[in-house]
Write a protein that binds this DNA or RNA. Structure first.
Lengths: 342, 342
DNA sequence: CTGAAAGCGCTTACAG
DNA sequence: CTGAAAGCGCTTACAG
């Protein structure tokens, strides 16, 4: 009667099976599979053949346990269905894969401040080598202090002051948009903003104000929305009543869609009566009732930069040496902007 | 001089640290952390306190290695930026998390047939307990035979005949849409389809044809698109020239947006001159130039069902006993449909 | 260039 | 109800 015989689930093939078939030791196989150079070409070939014949792939869990690295990046997002988040996610996945990293999704929906913090700290030691935050909803920057050694990068501009970040240059993008309208001859530009507690919304709002001020124009009262088409529609119903409104800069394309419909319903034509500019360049922007002039963000570049920032930290770089990367936006002129009716 | 002293990266706290502090053995800690009942309440409390004080969380890699399960679900998708994929992804993540599973993203962009197969088989043994396929682009059903024991579920209808699936009932959804137009008094209904090699596109196209045929109407020539707003626009330019066209059922909402703009440009009004119905109910559908009547798919339910299907297999159920789950769609009437002009 | 041994942190029978 | 021992599959010094 043997003692201590442990039964364990066999996950599949192990390094030993390959070693046996190739007639070498286990760690020669290890050397081959991890790409070490110190292996005689013939030996390497024999091992590689054996791996192929058996269909061997190394066990990630075992490697992770031994090395202390999971080769996994956590990706924190929230509103997957928004163009910006979705495209950034896609780009992060592609860039991570390129570097041999898997990406694990973390949805922070409904996560309270404290549980968010708890979550982040757990994740750090447990299941991932790094964290990319696209949007962290309710999380305060301080809660991230919990995991001070975790490689991290954000595109959430609320956290951008505290952590390595990759963010579109929304200020310049906004300036170009507002400037464009002024150059067309509009006497002022109205604005439908995003929510007041959103940093990117405030950045765009401030840039709009300052551009007007820079042109000697006192900014009109702004309308406050929440990024949604509905909020654009509701602001639009009121804007449509004001004959002085001839140009509107919207915080994003969805809002612009809502505005466009409200104007349409009120019988005001775009761009003849009112010019509209959005932000983001979502797929449908080009196919709005009137093709939408907008400011494109390069979400692909943002995703790549996020991965780069995070892997630099995995490689040893310190958080505070990394700072913020600003990606340029691109002004896209379509048909929703025109000179005002004289 | 000690021999064989191995240096290893310390990931953090281990079960032993907790055991020491609580004054128990390591596997009593294990029992507590895995929720076993065979622990005296006082002992449990002491252990839990120690875990809290230390901020201990179990090492997933170690557990995975030992148990042979990673508690990770692979999520294969492609066009993250599409409403359907994004919402399904989101729902999968939520449902998986609920069950204690992490979700790893797999983008199959540009993956050739063979590498796809290779990929799937590797993933299976290596890093995930199950695979949820939302869309598998170029992958033929046969390539999945490579991982016959991998728990799997799909919402890609091309694979639905071969693997456990959760799919919206597009046939009924289409019937309702076409029927609605006929009941409004339209003499026929035109159709802009998705690409010919897309199964869901063909399902909708066939249902459209059959509904017309069932009403004794010979289906007009369909226009073939590719799901995009642009293809809707291009078909729309031709449709707009035909005075017999009074109602169009589109394969999806994006296509309907493109069509709407083409009609707009041609001076044909919606719904006065032409009624339009889309499919999906994307966020902007309600805020099209004319609020879009459409067929809503319940992506949330699909995501939940995918996770359920996959976890049943993890629990021992056989693939072939699972079959296909069909989720109902919902007809959403808005302003883009009306009786024809007499 | 190759191999023997130890150990990453956990859980699984088994014994008490 | 609790503990001692073994081992999941891998990699890391170390020795040769």
């Amino acid at each position: 009667m043997t003692t201590g015989a442990t039964s364990t689930r066999r996950t599949g093939l192990s390094i030993k099976d390959v070693a046996r078939l190739a007639g070498v030791s286990a760690q020669t196989v290890s050397r081959v599979s991890s790409g070490s150079t110190n292996v005689r070409p013939e030996t390497r070939e024999r091992v590689e053949l054996a791996m192929q014949q058996l269909g061997y792939t190394p066990n990630r869990a075992a490697r992770a346990l031994r090395v202390g690295q999971t080769h996994t990046i956590g990706l924190m997002a929230h509103r997957f269905e928004r163009t910006g988040e979705a495209l950034t996610m896609k780009s992060v996945v592609a860039a991570a894969e390129q570097e041999g990293y898997a990406v694990t999704l973390i949805d922070v929906v409904g996560t309270s401040e404290s549980s968010w913090a708890q979550r982040a700290s757990r994740l750090s030691e447990q299941a991932m080598d790094a964290l990319v935050i696209i949007r962290a909803e309710g999380a305060a920057p301080e809660s991230l202090a919990i995991a001070p050694t975790l490689p991290i990068a954000v595109s959430d501009s609320r956290l951008a002051g505290y952590l390595p970040a990759a963010i579109a240059d929304q200020t310049t993008g906004t300036q170009e948009a507002v400037q464009h309208l002024l150059e067309l001859g509009h006497r002022t530009v109205h604005h439908i903003s995003g929510p007041v507690d959103s940093v990117p919304a405030q950045v765009r709002s401030t840039a709009w104000q300052q551009t007007l001020a820079g042109a000697g124009i006192r900014p009109p009262q702004q309308f406050v929305g929440d990024w949604s088409a509905r909020s654009g529609y509701e602001s639009g119903r009121r804007l449509a009543l004001d004959p002085d409104v001839s140009a509107v800069f919207c915080c994003n394309d969805e809002t612009a869609f809502g505005l466009m419909r409200a104007l349409h319903e009120a019988g005001r034509r775009v761009p003849d009566d009112v010019s509209i500019i959005g932000f983001d360049d979502i797929g449908l922007a080009e196919f709005a009732a009137v093709p939408l002039t907008t400011v494109r963000q390069d979400f692909h570049a943002i995703g790549e930069e996020l991965v780069r920032l995070v892997l630099m930290q995995v490689g040893g770089a310190e958080r505070h040496t990394l700072g913020r990367t600003t990606l340029p936006t691109q002004f896209v002129q379509r048909a929703s902007t025109a000179p005002p009716r004289s």
